Simulated scan of single mutants.
Amino acid sequence: MMHPEIATLAELDRALTDGRSLRGLRLQDLDLRGREGELLAHRKIEGLVVLGGRLSPALDAHLRAEGALIFPTDPGLPVNPYRAHLYRPTELYNGLVESGYAATPDAHAYAWSQDPDRRRDAYATLITAIHDDSILDALDELVVRRSVVGVMGGHAERRGTTQYARAAHLGLRLADRGFLVATGGGPGSMEATNLGAFTTNSADLDHALTQLARAPEFADGIDGWALPALRLHHELATDPRTSTRSLGVPTWFYGHEPPNLFGHWIAKFFSNAIREDILLARCDAGIIVLPGAAGTVQEIFQTATHLYYGRSTRQPPLVLVGHEHWTTTIPAWDVLQRLADGRAMSSAIHLVDTVDDALDVVGDPVD
């Protein structure tokens, strides 16, 4: 039996006014104090589950007495494990301007996850699992009925380089075609691609590239790297509720790499293994792989595993960009070809030299 999740007060109001029972509903991360009167009138609500949110002691006691299951919020945690929506970059970087990156929610979450005592704590393990499941649920709601193209690439690509600019223009052109552009959400090629998709025209993108080139890499200091990006985010932002073109899917596992500020939404996970599989599996319109190193190679072969065992004859393309890089510097292409020999995946893998070639392979979204 499906248990409907209610993640907005508008959805709750509809449930309250249509007279149906609250049994089996999941109220996720809602401030219920303004609906206390209506909720106090409901009796025998076994199966109602309240996930986080805010409610008065009187409402808490009433719901429990009538059979509801309450999962309270823990204000001591650096994240809300029951959140119903993805992160916005400005949320993760709150406090950056006033106090620096170390004071941001993103930095606090990473420090909490790396605490040796927390890592051996069953409660902390449960919280991170609930959080990641909540983020997955919100991510799936975002990508439904969207054609998603993933762009993978190295985190070390410096702002101001030709390769960074090419990745950015790739992101812009993919988003202009109607794709939702997804990356691993970090710096380097990932940031460049998210930046391109975040902008809506070449003039704004070229302006952004010029501004960001003054702070080439996060290794020189996260504050100096993030501050110009935050200013550009505010300057270029469109409402993500009406225009979502750019998605970042980073992880606190690599917390030393800060998330970039150019996803309209950020799906950030504690578990990198879950995050990797989720990101790649939801790129239903294809994956473009720019030059990278170990992490990028992992993504190539994780995707290849799905293609290798896939039964469909129409598989989304896996496009490696950079003949010399993927045949000589890191000869992943040779392994891919050997895996694909005689299998359906042979028609899904491509090696091209330019992002223009990659765009030709991906084509346009399918209605």
Rank of each mutant, 00 (worst) to 15 (best):
T8D: 14
L9A: 13
A10N: 14
G24D: 02
Q28N: 10
D29I: 08
D29T: 10
G34E: 03
E36T: 10
L40G: 07
H42V: 04
L55N: 08
P57E: 07
L59N: 09
E66P: 07
L77Q: 01
L77P: 02
N80S: 09
R83N: 10
L86I: 03
G95I: 02
A102P: 07
T104C: 01
D106H: 13
H108C: 11
A111E: 11
D117R: 15
R118G: 14
D121W: 02
Y123C: 06
T125A: 15
D132R: 10
D137Y: 14
A138T: 06
V143E: 02
R146C: 11
V148N: 08
V149K: 03
G153R: 01
R158A: 11
A165T: 01
H169Q: 09
R173K: 12
R177P: 13
G178L: 06
L180P: 00
L180A: 00
V181N: 04
T183R: 01
G186R: 03
F198L: 00
N201Q: 15
A208N: 13
T210S: 14
Q211K: 14
P216Y: 05
D223K: 03
H234A: 13
H256N: 15
P258S: 08
P259W: 11
F262Q: 01
W265E: 12
F269D: 04
N272R: 09
G286F: 07
G286E: 05
L290K: 08
L290T: 07
F301V: 02
F301N: 03
T305Q: 07
Y308I: 11
S312G: 12
T313D: 11
R314C: 08
P317K: 10
R338F: 15
L339V: 12
G342S: 00
T354S: 11
V355K: 08
L359K: 13
V361E: 10
